[in-house]
Design a protein around this nucleic acid. Sequence first.
DNA 1: CAGTGAGCGAGCTTCCGCTTGACTT
Length: 825
Amino acid sequence: MAKKIMIVESPAKAKTIKKYLGSDFEVKSSFGHIRDLKKNELSVDIEHGFKPHYEILPEKRKVVNELKSAVKEADEVWLATDEDREGEAISWHLCEVLGLDIERTPRIVFHEITKSAIQKAVQQPRSIDMKLVDAQQARRVLDRLVGYKLSETLWRKIRGKLSAGRVQSVALRLIVEREREIQQFQPKHYYKVDALFEVEKGDGQKALLKAVLDRRLDDRQGAMELLQKAKNALFHIKKIEKKPLTKKPPPPFITSTLQQEASRKLGFSVTRTMRVAQSLYESGWITYMRTDSVHLSDTALQAIKDVVVDEFGEEYLQMRQYQTKSKMAQEAHEAIRPTYLDRKIAGNTQDEQRLYELIWKRTVASQMADAQLEKTTVEITMSTEPEAVFRAEAEVLRFDGFLRLYQAASEEEEESEKTVLPPLEVNQQLPLREMTALERQTKPPARYSEASLVKKLEELGIGRPSTYAPTIAKLMDKNRSYVVKESREGTPVQFEKLVLRDGEIEETTITEKVGSVRNRLFATDIGMIVVDFLKEHFEEIVNYGFTAEVEEKFDEIARGKIKWQEVIETFYGPFQKTLERTLKEAGRIKAERVLGKDPNTGLTVVAKLTRVGPAVQLGTFEELGEGQKPRFANLKPDQSLETITLEEALQLLSLPKYLGEFQGKDVVVNRGRYGPYIQWGKDTYISLPKGEDPYQVDRDRALELIGEYLRLQQPIASYRDKPIFVMKGRYGPYLKWDNKNIKLPKDISIDQLTAEVAVGVVDDYVQSTEPLGEYEGKPIERGIGRYGPYIKWNNRFYSLPKGRKLSELTLEEAIELIQRKTAKE
DNA sequence: CAGTGAGCGAGCTTCCGCTTGACTT
C-alpha cells in the first residue's frame, strides 16, 4: 500500500487528525514556521527587489530533519497547515525545504477539526496559492524593514537595546497617550444627591425607596439650596414607566475575549490565561486557543443543544451562529470551546479547572435563550423646585434565559443602584425620610489593563491572537521597560457630606481614597520619550490606522491585483528618505529638565533619565569641577520626569539622612533598590514597613525599628529542641521552625504572641502535616499550600472541603475523599 | 538584597507571527 504523510502545524492537532484519518495517513507536525529571515541581519536585499534570505530556524533543525526522512520514505506528501496567510506560507516553506513540487503537492484546508470536515477536505485537495504566500512575504518583509530600521534609529538617537515595530509601538502609544490624558486631567468637584422616601406597604409596614437626582450639582451652595428647599417640599410620583428589555448571550470565546473574561473573573494575566489554555488544549479538553473566529462546528452545536435541553429544558434553547466582528480576522479555526460538551469539569490544576468551567459556561450559554427583563423607572418631583427630578430604577427578571448559566463581567463596576421597588402609584405622595448631598469628583480615563489593551488592539486590527500576550510582555521587558504593571494606592481626598434629616441639615467631612488601581499598565519616562520621538519623525507608522492600510495592500496581493515587491517599494522609498533625514537632523535625545537651584547649596537641580532610570541630580559636573561627583536620587515609581517639581526633587535628595549613633554604630535612613530601609552599622539593613514614608522617619522611629529587629533576632521559643523564630514576610508574620515557614492564624497578632502560643502553633502544624496513615499501602500526606489545606496521596493532590481543618481530618474521611475523586475520573 | 548615574567608544541589541519543549524554581 502506498505510504502517505500529512503535515499540520501543531502536534496536538496531528494526534486528533490521525484518529479521524485512520491508517491511510501518517500525520506529522511542523511546530509552526520552520523558516524565517536571519535574525542577526536585515536579511532583505533592498537593492535586488527586496529578496528575502530565509534560513531554517535554528530550533527547528531537528524537526526539519525528521520531516525530511519521513518524506523520503513516503510516496505522497499532503499539506494541511492552517487556512490563512501564515499557514499558506508554512506550506510553501515546507515545499522549498523538503524539495516538494509546489504545483503537484496536494494542499487541503479545514477550519474545524471534526471527522466530517476532514474527510470532506481530503476529497477536495488544491495546490499552494502563491498569491497568498506572497501576501505573507510582503507582511514579513515590511515588519522586518520597519522593525529593524526603526530600532536601529532608536539605538543611535536614544539608547541601545530599545525596539520599535508596527505592533509594539502602537500598543505603547496607546498607553503613553492615556498616561498623558491622566496627567493633564483636572478633576471637577460636584455633588450627587439621593433621597430616601418612605412608602406605606399594604401590611402597615414601611418600605424605603431610594431615588437619585437626575443631574449633578456644581457646588456646595447649590447643594445647600436644594436641601433647604427640600425641608418644606412635598414629593409626588409623576411617572412610572415600564419597559421590556432583552439581553442576548455573548458569543463563544476567541483569544481576546477569553483573555478579557479570565482577567476580570479569575484575575489572570494574559500570559497566564494562554499558558493554562495551552495545557487544556494539549490534554484534549478544549479546541485551539489562538483563534479569532466565533464559528462553532455543526457537531459542537448539536452537542450544546443536548446539554441545554438536558440541563435547562427546551424553553432555554435558542440556537445561533455568531458573526466575527473584526475585519482582520483570518478564521482558520473554530471558537474556543470544550471538545466534549458533556464534560462540565476538566483539567488537572485549579487554574485549569476554573478556566475550563468559564469556557464551558460561555459556550453553552451562547446557544441559550435571551433573558427577558422589565425595567421600571419612577420619576419623583419636588414641589418647591420644579427643576429637580428624582429617579429610581429597578429591573425585574421575567425570564432568566442564558443568565441562569453565565453572566459576563463588566470592565467597570456598576455604579447604578438597582433596588426592588415596593408597590407604587402615579400621583402618590411620598414622605421624605432623608436627603443626602455627597461631594464627588470626576474621574480621569482609566489606565489600560493587559486585557483592555488587548481589546483595544483587536478593535484597531493590530496584532494577532498568537501575539497579544508576547507583545505586552515585550513592552514590560527589562531591556526596554517602556511600561510597568502596578497596583497603586489612591490618594486621600476630603469630601463634604450634607444630610437633611428631621428638618435639620448636618454637615460632615469624609476622607476617601481616590484612584486606587490594581494591575494597571503605566507608561514609564523612557516609554514616553520613545513614543514622542516616533510620533515626531515616523508619524505614518505609529498612526493607529497604519496596520489597516497595509492590510488592504496585502489583500490586494492575495487577490493577485498587485505584486508584493511593488507594495514594499511604494512604502520603502519615502520611508528610507525619512530615515536618512532623521539620522542626519535629529539630535541625540537627552531627556533633561532643569528644576531650579537648591536653596542650601546654590547648586542646580536637574531631572534626567540616567543609564539606570529616571533620577534627580544635585549639581552639574561643570558646577562641581574636576573629580567631584553630583548626588543622585531615583524617582519614586509614581513620579515622572515630566511632572516632578523642585520641592519633590529636594525631598528625594534629602536621603540618605544621618540619624546619629546607636550602640556605637551609625544609623542612616535611605531608599534603595528594594525600597526604603534603615542602615545600622556596616551590614545591618532593616526594611521599613510597607507604606511607611522614609522622609518622615526620625531618630525615635528608627530606634524603635532597630529594637524590634533585635527582638526578632532571638528565638521566641523552642520546640523539639529546635528554635522558633518570628519572621515578617510579604504576606504578614509567620514562624520559622526547622526550615519550615508556618503562617500565623489570623486571630493571633504579632504583639500578643507569647512563647506558649508560638509552641502551640508549631505543634498544631506538626500534628496536621505528619502523614495521616496509609491507603492501599501508600502514605497519605498532609500539607498547606497556596490554595489552602490539602492531602497528597500517590503523587496527587486533593483539596479539603471548605471549613475542614487538617488536624481534625480522620483517616476514614481522607480515604473517602480519595475514593470519591478517583471515582469521578 | 540596599550600587549605580558624564565623557571616551568597541561590540552588543532589534521586528511579527506560527508552534512547543528543555531548561530551572
